[in-house]
């Protein structure tokens, strides 16, 4: 249950929002000339990557606006919120690096419950 900063209404509880999946997948204009594979890529295939992920969210219980959100799916850390039509800003984040593919902290994975020897606080 994280908080989301609606670009209009400000910070609200996640329960007010609805997630619309991966962002920046534009509906093709010339679909008739696309192959089945190309079309299936648009309809069915999503990256679902671990780490930085651009998603569409809708403030369903509030202003009903759709907007984009950049989230680290390994940690639920929200890196940026930006409006529809805008491109994702570039921001730094703890990308998954450990052998188990976890962010180095905040992921709750077994591999990152403890500080490593020599790791700074």
């Amino acid at each position: 249950m994280f908080l989301i900063e609606c670009p209009w209404c400000g910070e609200r509880d996640m329960s007010e929002f609805h997630c619309g999946g991966e962002a920046h997948i534009a509906r093709p204009d010339q679909s008739e000339s696309m192959t089945d594979e190309e079309w299936a890529q648009f309809v069915f295939m999503r990256k679902n990557s671990k780490g930085r992920y651009a998603e569409r969210w809708n403030h369903a219980a509030g202003c009903r606006r759709w907007f984009n959100l950049l989230r680290n799916t390994a940690t639920d850390q929200i890196l940026a919120v930006y409006r529809m039509g805008e491109t994702a800003p570039s921001v730094a984040t703890d990308e998954p690096v450990t052998p188990s593919g976890e962010a180095p902290i905040g992921s709750g994975n077994d591999a990152v419950k403890l500080m490593k020897p020599g790791e700074a606080l």
Partner: peptide
């Protein structure tokens, strides 16, 4: 630890 901090 529930807050996902790291222990030492």
């Amino acid at each position: 630890s529930q807050s996902r901090g790291k222990l030492f």
